[in-house]
Design a protein around this nucleic acid. Structure first.
Lengths: 203, 203
DNA sequence: ATATGGTTTAACCATTCGGTTAACAAATGT
DNA sequence: ACATTTGTTAACCGAATGGTTAAACCATAT
């Protein structure tokens, strides 16, 4: 069947491209290397995705579409605030362990190319902070947590969950830990980070 | 004077290289672009720094030597723990505003090339966590703060201070803020982050 | 003034890289 | 059976890139 075969190669190209782009970035990636990893001729890359740029964008959008639901689980899920923080830290860390290069890739390319954000905004599931903001302000009004801007709290949550992966080599060196020990620390963070945050804001 | 002239160009090359490398990374940087920015012939780059790789390493070590004292101020300064946290968040954020690309550059290249850490470790002022660890454990023993691993606390401090800069484009999009508003939020963090951390750990 | 040393440049080189072409292969429709 | 469309490849191309060379420049020492 033509369709199956062509769909297969198309997906295999995307998978190969994903690996290479996420490890080496747009500039460091080579079309030949992607072709090799996908076990096809280089010209096929251009047959399916006209240019390196378009192939990259396909990978990037795909990566972000995996990340978005994770972020949405903090922003637009309607569970209790503390519970939500606990769920997020736990599930996000599990997520990144499964996709180690992904958040760094997204953030890095977004830094090199801030106008990419515009393209992401168009996507349906792009997370917005509004629900979270209301929830935080309600919790403050009800005397459940200390006054804090929702944006600041959000940044704190994301920072403590995302940075340990992005800064892994640096943090390993600074804390003087090997891989095994660092992984143990990260695993422990699945619960510790939530506790830390809740302790910081609860009255 | 010969020496002055040659030292001048050598430094101007380093400055030009710093800008280009920090904005575009090792792979994205072009020797010609660096030469243009330094207003010299491309061959001069090779005259002073034999190869792109060596020029890059010079820039990288230089960048890290600026960053290290900042980190040391959390790790190896002997002021009171809470005071130290307050000083660090305040001074680190000021530092990054002066060198916006620097931390991202260091972290990014370290990710692409984790064995670079070995070269950094050799440098004299490379920060270690030992003093900080003792201080945290003492504070726990004295009932000043809740039990927490020094490494976890350290990672939290660094994360909340570093990530808002590294993740800026993403965080701006997620919190739906423009440059002006985001800068205001970051400025506010100079004091807010310390308060947040201290609230999380104090008894 | 002239030789000497480091400094700077224009021109050049080999290789790499993204992309194209033209021909071939395989599937599909009639 | 045969024509048409779709998928795949080897070979090729031009531009860009890191690096080299040989000559010119210029300050200083003799």
């Amino acid at each position: 069947m033509t369709k199956e075969k062509s769909e297969n190669t198309e997906i295999e190209i995307l998978n190969a491209a994903k690996e290479i782009f996420q490890q080496k970035g747009m500039d460091g990636a080579r079309m030949q290397e992607i072709a090799d990893k996908a076990k096809i001729n280089k010209a096929l890359l251009h047959y399916y995705y006209r240019s390196k740029q378009l192939l990259f964008e396909a990978v990037f959008k795909n990566a972000f579409s995996l990340l978005a639901p994770q972020l949405n689980s903090v922003l637009n899920d309607d569970s209790d605030l503390f519970e939500k923080i606990r769920n997020f830290t736990n599930s996000y860390i599990s997520f990144v362990i499964k996709h180690p290069y992904l958040p760094n890739f997204v953030i890095q390319e977004l830094n090199k190319n801030p106008e990419f954000v515009l393209k992401l905004r168009e996507q349906k599931n792009f997370p917005t902070i509004d629900t979270f903001k209301t929830q935080v302000n309600d919790a403050i009004k009800n005397g459940v947590i200390k006054p804090i801007e929702a944006e600041q709290l959000f940044i704190n949550i994301i920072s403590m969950n995302v940075f340990p992966f992005i800064g892994k080599p640096l943090l390993m060196a600074l804390t003087n830990t090997d891989k095994k020990e660092y992984d143990r620390i990260v695993q422990k963070r699945k619960t510790e980070v939530a506790t830390f945050i809740i302790d910081a804001i609860k009255i």
